[in-house]
Amino acid sequence: MSPAGAGAARRPRVVVLDYGSGNLRSAVRAVERAGAEVTLTADRAAAQEADGLLVPGVGAYAACMAGLHAVRGPEVIGRRLAGGRPVLGICVGMQVLFARGVEHGVETAGCDEWPGTVERLHAPVVPHMGWNTVEVPEGSQMFAGIADERFYFVHSYGVRSWELVTDGRTRAPLVTRTIHGDEQFVSAVENGPLWATQFHPEKSGDAGAALLRNWIATLR
């Protein structure tokens, strides 16, 4: 007889990057329920070697960037992406992937994986808090099977305008947008191994769980 467990599929290993931002335990539990083996850590070697890296984030852009720099997060993210290794950013963890953030007139440099500026939303009601639909581009793997669902948002800042320019040799990111009031903002991005959402999948019920499963399926 074969040994017990032989032939069973290995659960992908995910690191949730612990840099002092947000309710990290909810992200850990959500990713575990979606089918991954999860470690919450700031250890750079573990973050580099995991099958997937999840970068959470809540609060102020500048504070999140300071926390990331303290654990050399931008370096870890950059090295993973250079090797085609998956990264998922959530909420401010998405925002810091852009070039810069502007809060109360203060500009803070981001990880600069994408051009673009995170700034305060101009909608009549801010913060944008609660459930909202998303406008999903054709070919999205992130939203496979859940393009018509709603997701949970809580934020006052976002990327309001993002004009993509490509050289024709690389595939342009797939950009999902959401309307709040009279304003449209970037609510998710798929760019090869780099995925990100402005909303919280871990707070978005069955739809959020399905999105996390879609991401984990790319780690196998």
Rank of each mutant, 00 (worst) to 15 (best):
P3Q: 11
A4H: 13
A4S: 15
G7I: 11
A8S: 15
R10I: 15
R10Y: 15
P12R: 00
P12H: 05
V16D: 03
G20I: 04
G22Q: 04
L24W: 11
R25I: 09
S26P: 04
A27R: 00
A30G: 11
A30E: 05
V31C: 05
V31Q: 01
E32L: 11
E37N: 06
V38T: 10
T41P: 02
T41C: 01
A42E: 08
A47Y: 01
Q48M: 15
E49G: 13
A50L: 11
A50S: 12
D51N: 04
L53G: 09
L54Y: 02
V55W: 01
V55Y: 03
P56H: 06
G57T: 02
G57L: 00
G59H: 02
G59W: 00
G59R: 02
A62E: 14
M65Y: 08
G67S: 09
H69W: 10
R72A: 06
R72M: 03
E75I: 09
R80H: 06
R80S: 02
L88M: 13
I90F: 12
M94P: 11
L97V: 01
A99H: 13
G101C: 12
G101K: 10
G105F: 10
E107Y: 14
T108P: 09
C111F: 15
D112T: 10
D112G: 13
E119K: 06
L121R: 03
A123H: 03
P124A: 11
P127G: 04
H128E: 05
H128G: 02
M129L: 10
V134S: 01
E135A: 08
Q141R: 12
F143A: 04
A144V: 04
G145M: 15
A147W: 05
D148A: 15
E149W: 04
R150C: 14
F153S: 10
S156L: 03
S156D: 06
V159R: 08
V159L: 13
T166N: 14
T170Y: 10
T176N: 01
H180A: 15
D182T: 11
A188P: 08
A188F: 07
E190A: 01
N191H: 14
G192W: 08
P193Q: 02
P193G: 01
W195C: 12
A196I: 08
T197L: 12
F199N: 00
H200V: 08
P201V: 01
G205S: 13
G205P: 14
D206H: 11
A209S: 12
L211W: 07
L212H: 01
W215E: 07
A217R: 15
L219Q: 03
